[in-house]
Amino acid sequence: MKTLSAVALACATLLAPALHASDWKPTRAIEYIAPANPGGGWDTLVRTTSAVIQAEGLADRNLAPINIPGGGGAVAWAQIARDNRNDHKIFATSPPIILVPLAGTSRFNHQDFTPLARLITDYSILLVHKDSPHQTANDLFAAIKANPRLSVGGGSAAGSMDHISLAGAASAAGIPAAQVNYIAFSGGGEAMTNLLGGHIEAVITGAGEAQGQLAGGQLRAIAVSAPERLQGPLAAVPTYREQGIDYTFDIWRGVMGPKNMRPEAVRYYEQLFSRMMETDSWREATERLGWLDAWQDSATFGEFLDQQQDQFRSVLAELGLLR
């Protein structure tokens, strides 16, 4: 009986490629890399998505989360880039895959990898202290124009996500991007603590990260970088566009693989993640984490990344940080 089924299985495996030329299935565990230490945005994405996929039994093989920290992602990218054509390796990605190479600290950029899918997005939010005189984004930018020393804190290094988001908004509001006094803190939480203590004038950070603080009522949000108002607890926060500043900024997150991944494998991952996003466990997880679905398939994601690169390049050039 056992032999019989084994023979049947062998036949099926032999026949399968002929019957479904486009079908590809993983033959071993899939390495799922977070290019950073545990605890950050990439790590949360990897651990949440793999947990949902596992719980719903969507993948044919295990997704094994792996942390490769270093170089703001560059260490992991260098390793993955060497692993050309490996169909069993994927990694979490977000704007740094474009920003870090533009700043000159990674030899590899998004074009050295295969975009698989964009999954979610968060938006930037501009915060002030509840007693601050600034009621709108325009108030704040006008004050900065009058007094360029006013400091705005953010949770990442100069030239990285928060700084770019702020500089882009300032630029759209008619202030030279380099004129904003950006103070880099080592996390959005630290920046918000400094705002609470009145050490800085405003803070730019991720909307999801700010929710807890905003609920406390000590801080006030004056603009969000989404194209339309957000749902839920942040529905009262106006967008830049509503305030006459034509500007949006996405903190998108998605999944990529090594270069030259075979098209069948790309299809497989596209389907895997699109099915994951339809499950209840996923809906539950995104609600908890304040993520917004922002699905794009491989091809659309690739085009989107090219546009992002153009946009970031011009902001970095304005800041004098392009290398």
């Binding site: 949360t44 651990r47 949440t48 929710q211 807890g212 603080q213 609920a215 406390g216 009522g217 000590q218 997880a285 908890r288 984490l289």
Partner: peptide
């Protein structure tokens, strides 16, 4: 992840 937002 567990749905608790620490804070004030």
């Amino acid at each position: 992840v567990m749905g608790v937002t620490p804070g004030p």
